[in-house]
Computed example of a mutant assay.
Amino acid sequence: MTHPEAHKSHRAGWLRAAVLGANDGIVSTASLIIGIATASATQEYILLAGIAGLVAGAMSMAAGEYVSVSSQADTENADLAIEKKALENDFESELDELTEIYQTRGLESGLAKQVAQQLMAHDALGAHAKDELGITDTTSAKPLQAAFYSAVTFTIGAALPLSLAWAIPGHLLVISVAVSSLFFLALLGGIAAKIGGASITAGALRVTVWGALAMSITAVVGNFFGVATQ
């Protein structure tokens, strides 16, 4: 009876985009709200800036992820085209190449060649894509998926501090947005670490520290320009 392990690596692509999007949504929007609030802006201007930041940030995240992951996909496709041509022009050399790869992984030469022959008989390009280039269905670039997850999770992340800025006006706005955003960041970091099979404490601490730093800097900048313009 087999006992398959619950591996986490198949989640790497969408998890990265989702965590990055939500994290940026919380940090950038909360920092923007805090910076403008400490500059003594009215609640209307704070909300307007927050909404603009949400829309612009979501579109920027989607576009950035799409362009970045598309470039990765282009590189993968180019490598696969080269490999396909090599298989058509010199199949035996490619067989030897795959055999050497298996030998370096610990197989004796005869077994390594036998494995290479059987795998290439089944799917030569797939075998080289996986074992020579490191490209699999799990790790291959998916631009639209990355763009979608980034935009949606950025919007969700940004909506959290923005909703607090709308619900809690006045002198409590800054502290409420800061504390709640840090809580959301810690929760997000812990959840992402749990899904990815990493340390929950380390994941939560990492995003919280950087979020606190970003909000602190924008608060200082906002306060400086608010005082300077009075």
Rank of each mutant, 00 (worst) to 15 (best):
T2Y: 13
R11T: 10
W14N: 04
R16I: 01
R16M: 05
R16G: 06
A18D: 07
A22T: 02
V27W: 14
V27E: 13
S31T: 08
I33Q: 09
I34Y: 08
I36Y: 02
A37E: 04
A39V: 06
S40T: 03
S40N: 07
A41G: 01
I46R: 05
L48V: 01
A49D: 09
L54T: 06
V55N: 05
A56E: 13
A63T: 10
V69I: 13
A73G: 12
D74V: 09
N77Q: 03
A78Y: 14
A78K: 15
A78G: 00
L80N: 02
A86T: 03
L87V: 06
E92G: 00
L98E: 10
E100A: 14
I101P: 03
Q103R: 15
Q103L: 11
R105Q: 10
G106W: 06
L107Y: 14
L107K: 12
E108M: 09
G110T: 11
Q114N: 12
Q118K: 07
Q118F: 02
H122L: 09
A127P: 08
H128S: 00
A129L: 10
D131Y: 15
D131F: 10
S140K: 15
A141I: 11
K142I: 15
A146M: 08
A146Q: 10
F148A: 13
F148Y: 12
A151V: 11
F154G: 03
I156A: 02
L160F: 08
L164R: 01
A165T: 05
G170F: 03
S176Q: 02
S176N: 01
A178C: 11
S181A: 05
F184D: 03
A186K: 08
L187F: 13
K194E: 11
G196I: 03
G197K: 01
I200K: 04
T201W: 03
A202L: 09
G203V: 06
V207Q: 00
V207H: 04
T208C: 11
T208W: 08
G211F: 12
A212C: 14
A212R: 15
A214T: 05
I217C: 00
A219Y: 07
V220Y: 07
N223P: 00
F224L: 04
F224W: 03
G226A: 06
A228E: 14
T229D: 11
